[in-house]
Amino acid sequence: ETWKMSADAPDGNYLTQNIRAFADDVARLSDGALEIDVVSNSVLLKRPELKRGVQRGIVPIGEVLISALGNEDAVYSADAVPLLATTFDEARALWEASRPIYEEKLAEDGLVLLFAAPWPPQGVYMNREVTDAASFEGVKFRAYNPSTARLAELLGAVPATIATSEISQAFSTGVINGMITSPSTGVDSQAWDFVSHYYDVQAFLPKNMVIVNKGAYDGLSDEVKTALQEAAELAETRGFEMAEEATGEATNTMADNGMNVLPTPEGLASDFETIAATMRAEWLEQAGEEGQKIVDAMN
């Protein structure tokens, strides 16, 4: 049997490379009983269409950014809450805490959760130097979902909605002055061509997860299911390792290309703590008991 799989990022990204390795593992471990044909760069299904596309069986298996589902249920935003998890170890703990809850939710939607792999910790890209929250006054800061919009607001910046495709132009011409995203996205888009400063604030580590249509999964023989789960386990471990490696590499690449790669300035760090506390409280309010369960499980 051959499954088409929709991968989120373009080919050069380590997350997609991890997915391709996962596909190889599945073929190997199942002795060719299940082949996965990976199509990268969200060509088969765009990010907003991925989850329901897998639900509906358009593709049997797909990869999606977990926090993209945050508007559907706030509990999916756990890995986008600032400073809840800032290192890879914490990200792993957060994942272990949230996984059972997601599994249950996805099962209700007819989906099986296989594994997740993290993006690098999110940093702040600015076209000027900043020292603390006050330097964000009046800065037009890119917002693409409720939590980034709230973050911009709490920083005192002006949230600005800019489509992904227009980021480089918007920066070059000054439509926006700042954004928050991972160093690997910065490298993918060659951020040094349009932005000068990168602050490694390690705000949070978003993750992509791989989900399978329940009907397609149930149609597999027990041996193949085992092979799939085994490959998923390997992919998760490898994904975390690759992410850690990619983070260092990407940060260095930006510095090598002349960007000012800087640690969080002290003033900003303390302001950020306050903002994170506010946002965590707000998230807990929205995510309710399940959110509390995740936070409790982490400590």
């Binding site: 373009p10 080919d11 050069g12 990204n13 760069n41 992904t164 495709s165 227009e166 480089s168 132009q169 070059s172 993918d188 888009s189 060659q190 061509d193 349009f194």
Partner: peptide
């Protein structure tokens, strides 16, 4: 150019360049 943006993302080439 819209096509350049699409190519830039797929091939990971700087859109500005």
């Amino acid at each position: 150019s819209i096509v350049m943006i699409v190519y830039g993302v797929a091939a990971q080439v700087s859109v500005n360049r």
